[in-house]
Amino acid sequence: MRLLTVLGSLGFLLFATLSGLEAQQTTDVTEQEIERYRAMISDPMANPAFLNVDRGEALWSTARGSKNVSLQQCDLGEGAGKLEGAYAKLPRYFADADRVMDIEQRLLWCMQSLQDLETTDIVRRRFSGPGVVSDLEDLVAFVANKSSGMKFAVSISSLKEREMLAVGEALFYRRSAVMDFSCATCHGDDGKRIRLQALPNLAKPGKPAQETMGSWPTYRVSQSQMRTMQHRLWDCYRQMRMPAPDYASDGITALTLYLTKQAEGGDIVVPSIKR
C-alpha cells in the first residue's frame, strides 16, 4: 500500500520534471520538491530500488545455466559467496580471470564460468526500461546493498590495478569528439553547474567524489528506474557526443576505479534515490 503511494508520487514528480524542461521556474520548484521528497523517504522500505534488491537476491540464489547452479558460489573478491563488504572493494584484481573487474564484469564472469549461462540476452537487457527488467541492475543492487554502511576501500596493490587506475585517470582528462569534452570539462572544478544542474568535482579526492560514488546504484526518479555506474558513464559519454561505450568494457572499469579511488573512505549508502 505504502509503496504504491510512493510510486504514485514518483510518477507525479516525473511528470513535474518533464514539464519543468519547458518552464524553467517549474524546474527550480521541482528541484526543491525532489530534495524534500528525497529527505522524506530516507526510509529504505519506501525506496523503489529495494524492489531491485529483492529481485537481485532471488536471482542470486536461482539455479541457472547449463550447470544449473546458483550464483551463491560466486567469488566477488572476498571469497566464494561472501557478499558483505565486497562491493566496497570493487573494482579489483581477480587472479582466476587475471583481470581487474568491476561489479558488472565480475557478475558476467560468474554467470559464464560458474553457471555456464548464455549472457547475450542478459546483456541485451543491461539497462531496464518500460517492459524491460535488467538482471544485472537487480544483482548489482543486491550486492551493493551488502556494503551499505561501509566505506570504499579499493586496493591498488597489483600491477594490473595500478595500470587500471592510471588509465582511468588519463581517460578522465581525455578530450574527444565534436564537442572536445572530457570528463574534466564538466567535473573538474568546484561549484560549477550545467544549466541549473550542480556538477560534482570528481577530479580530486574528497567529499563531492565520496558523496557521488557512495550513492550509486541509485533510483533515478527522472527515469523511473534503478541505475548503476555503467549507465551513468554511458549517459555522460552520450552528452560528450561519443558513441555508446561497450557495456562492461575495460574503459568503464578504469574510470570507475579512478572515481572510486577519489571516493576512498566515503560512506556507501545504497541503493539511494536521486533526481
Binding site: 595500470e163 581517460l171 581525455r174 561519443m242 561505450p245 561497450d246 568494457s249 575495460d250 574503459g251
Partner: peptide
Amino acid sequence: QVEAYVRNTWKSP
C-alpha cells in the same frame, strides 16, 4: 596504453 583501452571500449562504432 590509453588508446588500447579506448579501442577496446568502442569496438565497433
